[in-house]
Design a protein around this nucleic acid. Structure first.
Length: 270
DNA sequence: TCTGACCTGCGA
DNA sequence: TCGCAGGTCAGA
């Protein structure tokens, strides 16, 4: 699913499409109603028409539409995407929300697996459970060190814990640890100062480069215009089990951590 | 702290 | 036909 770079790509592409658009109508499928977390379908349908979209925000993997007096929030789950043209959808039967603007433009939310979630807030949502966003929040090496000390868990699970760092998922957790040269099996409290510095640098660069490449496409994820991202061509370990490490040539290994596939180089990552 | 369930599509 | 897939959360 969309991790931080994919959601940020969607936000950047949606902004020029949506900003200052006034919503005319809202269509919500039956399944789409099931995605709503804190309001009834009828309230969702009635609250949006007439609202102008002022801007879009991202916090971790959440996308927040700032309108005049409501704040619809989307979490894309594993397979949620936004499209500006329903004709490019590969799964039109899974389009659950359609917004029509006064300009005549449209916006579609598609979610094949229906793990996505939608909220409707009357004020900017607080996200009390969410940790620091390593791309858009102030985030220093010392902040990372404090987070590492506070927890006692496996490093990969730590990176994916949204209460600590908001936005990293399964692909980028493996890629970040490879970039830092640290094993996914290490515990949070065992990192040296040099390793913490390497991990900090890896978090920043891996996410930033993925954003520059419009995210990673494996199956469902598409950019707003229906295209694939580019970052899958640059992955060093994810889904490269049995292939040679780009640094040392040793075979990339796959293990399961927290019931999720984890890829690493046993030679380069200590 | 960890596992399984949620849901659908795809490839082996 | 089965296992797996980029996320999250309840329950053990």
């Amino acid at each position: 699913m969309p991790e931080l770079p994919e959601v940020e790509t969607i936000r950047r592409q949606l902004l020029p499409v949506c900003q200052a658009q006034v919503i005319r109508t809202v269509e919500l499928s039956d399944a789409g109603g099931g995605l709503l977390q804190n309001c009834h379908p009828e309230e969702f349908r009635q609250s949006l028409p007439g609202q102008s979209i002022r801007t879009l925000h991202r916090r971790g993997k959440f996308l927040i539409f700032e309108c005049d007096s409501v704040f619809p929030v989307f979490h894309l789950g594993m397979s949620g995407i936004f499209l500006t043209d329903a004709a490019v959808s590969r799964y039109p039967q899974h389009i659950h929300v359609r917004l029509e603007f006064h300009s005549g433009k449209e916006l579609f939310f598609q979610d094949m697996r229906r793990f996505g979630k939608i909220w409707l807030h009357r004020d900017f949502p607080p996200f009390p459970q969410l940790g620091v966003d390593p791309v858009s929040d102030p985030f220093s090496r010392n902040d990372l060190q404090q987070l590492l000390i506070r927890r006692d868990t496996g490093l990969k699970l730590f990176l994916m814990d949204q209460r600590a760092l908001a936005g990293i998922g399964n692909i980028y957790a493996s890629e970040i640890l490879f970039s830092a040269g640290i094993s996914p099996l290490r515990r949070t409290r065992t990192l040296s100062a040099a390793e913490t510095a390497a991990l900090y640098a890896a978090i920043r660069t891996v996410l930033a480069e993925a954003i520059e490449r419009f995210g990673t496409t494996y199956s469902a994820y598409r950019t707003v215009d229906g295209h694939s991202g580019d970052n899958q061509h640059f992955l060093k370990v994810y889904q490269r089990e049995g292939q040679p490490c780009v640094r040392c040539g040793r075979e990339i290994e796959k293990i399961v951590l927290g019931s999720r596939s984890t890829f690493f180089c046993p030679q380069c990552q200590k």
